[in-house]
Amino acid sequence: MNTFQQHTSLITGGNSGIGYATAKLFKAKGANVIITGRNTDAIAKASTELGVTGYVSDQASLQAIDALVASIKSEFGTLDSIFLNAGVAEFQAFEQASESHFDTLMDINVKGVFFTLQKLLPILNEGGSVIFNTSVNASVGMPNSAVYSASKAAIIGMSRILATELAPKNIRVNCISPGPVETPVYEKLGMNSEELNGFSKLLSEKILLKRFAQAEEIAQLASFLASSDSSFITGTEVIIDGGLTVNPVIN
């Protein structure tokens, strides 16, 4: 059943992985869907495949965010939901972590997300839904993820404040915290195929359901939180990790 008729949704980082799966699902449910990404070719390909509107936008640039907001306002007027999914995942041991590593993750995952929402807020309809894509890494204590974990924990903390501040407009604010998901992000960790397979096996053994999530499973949760079916849910972090956080020590 189409549940998003006359619903306009922005999904940042919608050209691959969780964002792509969510855009596909929202489109199938009748929504007007907007996706963003930094890569021109990837956005063009994804928007064509999905039949949605795509904008090239760098979340780390406030000027790019301003341009994005102006484009959305001009073409669509307002939004009904925002899925702040775009982010980067890079991992370094604490003792080797560089200033560049720290700044990159914080600029994109925290500063960029903060100002994207702040600048979009004037065109988000009352009664709208804001969804942050965070991570169980904020709490499970995985080695080599100090900065990434801190960036996601910052968003979870911020979401609770925003849920309070935006409640008078009946705007709901929630977080999705996935465990490991089969997306291209794991191909970007700098591991060779043997190391990647070993890493995946280790994580799978820690997950009660013994597998990674599919991006489509995260999309279903995003769909629920964007819809009126979750009308009494706000200020919440929903963990979707197959039971990983029941057995959280990863080493």
Rank of each mutant, 00 (worst) to 15 (best):
M1F: 06
N2R: 12
F4S: 00
H7K: 15
T8E: 05
S9M: 15
L10T: 10
G13I: 08
G14P: 01
G17K: 06
I18H: 05
I18E: 04
T22Y: 07
K24Q: 13
L25R: 03
K27Q: 13
A28H: 04
A28Y: 04
K29G: 08
A31M: 08
V33S: 04
I34C: 08
T36A: 07
D41G: 00
A44L: 11
A44W: 04
K45Q: 15
K45N: 14
K45I: 15
S47E: 14
E49V: 09
T53L: 08
G54C: 11
D58W: 03
D58T: 04
L62P: 00
A70E: 12
E75M: 14
G77C: 14
D80P: 13
F83E: 02
F83K: 01
F83C: 04
F83R: 02
A86C: 09
V88E: 11
E95H: 08
S98N: 07
S100Q: 12
D103W: 13
I108R: 02
I108S: 05
N109S: 07
V110K: 02
V113I: 15
V113E: 11
F114W: 15
Q118I: 08
Q118N: 06
K119Y: 08
P122H: 03
G127S: 11
T134L: 11
M142P: 00
N144H: 09
A146H: 01
S151T: 12
S151D: 06
S151V: 09
A154H: 05
I155R: 01
I156F: 02
S159H: 11
S159F: 14
R160C: 13
G179H: 08
V181S: 00
E182M: 14
G190P: 02
M191W: 10
N192P: 05
S193I: 15
N197F: 12
S200I: 15
K201C: 03
L202P: 02
E205F: 13
K206W: 09
K210A: 12
Q214V: 12
I218P: 01
I218M: 07
A222D: 12
A222P: 11
S223G: 10
L225N: 02
S227R: 01
S227L: 04
S228L: 07
S230T: 04
S231A: 15
F232I: 07
I233P: 00
T234K: 02
I239V: 15
I240R: 00
I240E: 01
D241L: 06
V249M: 00
I250K: 00
